[in-house]
Amino acid sequence: MSPEFSDKVKKQVQDILAHYPEKKAALLPVLHVAQQEFGFIGEDTERMVAALLDIKPVQVREVVTFYTMYNRKPVGKYHIQVCSNLSCSLLGGAGLLDFLLKKLNIGLGETTKDKKFTISTVECLGACEQAPCMMVNFDYYGDLDEEKIDKILDNLK
């Protein structure tokens, strides 16, 4: 079944479209909305978005695969992205990544069996003063250590 936006989301998309003189310019924001809705951008979603913006599906694919934030496959309820850039690494980011992977018993880029967590690395999040840091969905967590990570995960239901 091909995905469809709910009426509320359709309204949201209309608002976005009004920001630009060209429909196509709304592609990135509309993909964000789609990902919010469906959790990932599958082929069907690509086609739907292409139709919505009067562009070709291939143009959507070009964009979806260029930007790291669009997931082409479903991810866990909580997508944990651990910063692997310099400031975070200087302060032990790599060790914390290992800690997380062990704790959740998955490999990098994988999702836990209960579909709750996916872990990946990410380049500098722009929060280097809180290094080491990570992002869970859109929330930032900084000044991490193992204890703090334990607490954060405990709070993610």
């Binding site: 599906p57 291939v58 694919r61 070009e62 260029f66």
Partner: peptide, 21 residues
């Protein structure tokens, strides 16, 4: 006709078509 595109980026960038296109 837009059959071809560049997918992925950096060293992984590649010329491709869609699965059904």
């Amino acid at each position: 006709t837009h059959e071809l595109g560049v997918f992925e980026r950096g060293v992984h960038a590649e010329i491709s078509i869609l699965e059904d296109g």
